[in-house]
Design a protein around this nucleic acid. Structure first.
Lengths: 250, 250
DNA sequence: CGCCCACTTGAGTAAGATCAACCCGAGTGG
DNA sequence: CCACTCGGGTTGATCTTACTCAAGTGGGCG
């Protein structure tokens, strides 16, 4: 059991967060009650409406985060992967969406009290929580932009490019193609289309040699060209912030 | 200038956050370099792409938060009001959307360094930052649900109900009607419609005696009936969390 | 007075939803 | 081993919704 905190530390330092820490902070993390949890493919990780006072981070595998709406439809809000926060834990206390394992999934779970220890003993780590939630917010806003103001082909490409970036960020190297173990229906619910129309959109993308999505695998023929085509700027995904922006004029 | 921190303290204790604090925390807040900033109606508060290392909270007045997209369209991501975070400051460092003042607006600005003082001297306030960002995330997700899976009339009612709840939460009592100083075009860009169609939707809502939106004022004829009609559950807006949910079964 | 901007209304069009088959490969059970 | 089922995926035809284009209206303000 002493093993989990060490892995968790590694997760912070070498995972997508790439956090530089001081020894005192490391020590704080090693003292936490982290546990690693495993879920089999298809298992439910979190369910809407239930309490989830602990913080849950995705470590390996693919998950799908969704919300069943009261009108019978479904919204897929994200496809979280290594490094993503699956629940905001005691911050909010209650989960507003469900998370299911699309492949075998492992997670790190942080006990409710630990979040306070972090804010005191490792403020930088705590800050990166804040950063993580803020990034999720950015991702959601960008999806909103897609669904409300971009054409279906563009939104689909956007999502595929976004996932490619997030994958490279999380250490899983991607060169033009990657596993994406979801159905056309999942995709449709993430992009605001019916699965029938999603199918036609994917068909057109194949015909135009832009992207193929088949058997749970995405293939981007020319990622750079695609980025240029839809004017995709990955900056909203960054977790470190390069400091390139200009200050706001007064 | 010593006055701003006191107002800021009041903002936390009596504003939407309703934070209970201990004297030590109050003292920390009083020692911060908070300043109050004022913007005239129509002024730009933040612009996309610019650095914003300080934290900015809306205090009075109405703002509109939007993003001009590279395809020429516009996404209105929110209508922030008292208590809302306008920029995530040094957490992210860069603003991904613009914020403009729709009426005269006043804000509280927290210097970059102060956020660290908070983590040490007022952890509960620090935590509420996280809560605030998480709530914004929830609001964005709910909007995503609206735009992708709810009919235009329903999304519009949803937004109007959401704003009513947020207004009462922030202390501005609302009984069925409130000021909402935006145009049909703003609304359209928030709900993923063209302004022409927005106009027709609003027209139908008037004809069916559901809601009127005219001259920057919203009137809900029967808020409860509307909530029931679209199955609106305001829980995602709560900042305190009542603790009513059941734990997740293992 | 006249302009501008928001709002309104109508007519035609196009994008996506809906309805309805059908295919195909992976299980599953006789 | 084969028949059956089931869950994707694919395709066609039709219908609806919301967009586009176009032409006003009306109030506020210089």
């Amino acid at each position: 059991m002493r093993e989990a905190p060490a892995k968790f530390l590694k997760f912070f330092e070498e995972g997508p967060l790439r956090l530089k820490m001081e020894e005192a902070e490391r020590e704080t993390i090693r003292s936490l009650a982290v546990s690693e949890k495993f879920y089999a493919k298809g298992a439910s990780i979190l369910e809407e409406g239930f309490t989830s006072r602990s913080l849950l981070f995705a470590s390996t595998g693919w998950a799908i985060s969704y919300k069943s709406m009261s009108n019978g439809k479904r919204l897929v809000s994200d496809f979280p992967l290594r490094g993503d926060l699956l629940s905001s834990g005691s911050v909010i206390g209650k989960s507003y969406r469900s998370v299911a394992a699309a492949t075998d999934v492992s997670t790190f779970e942080l006990a409710p009290g630990d979040i306070n220890s972090l804010s005191i003993g490792a403020p930088r780590v705590f800050m990166s929580l804040l950063r993580l939630v803020a990034r999720n917010f950015g991702i959601a806003t960008e999806r909103l932009a897609s669904v409300s103001r971009r054409r279906p082909i563009e939104r689909t490409i956007w999502l595929f490019l976004e996932m490619a970036h997030r994958l490279t960020q999380s250490g899983t190297a991607v060169a033009g193609s990657y596993d994406f173990p979801f159905t056309q229906g999942d995709l449709a619910d993430a992009l605001g289309l019916t699965s029938i129309h999603m199918n036609r959109v994917l068909g057109e993308m194949r015909r135009r040699n832009l992207v193929t999505f088949r058997n749970g695998r995405v293939e981007l023929f020319n990622a750079q060209a695609l980025q240029d085509m839809i004017l995709f700027d990955p900056e909203y995904l960054s977790l470190h912030w390069a400091g390139s922006a200009k200050p706001m004029p007064t």
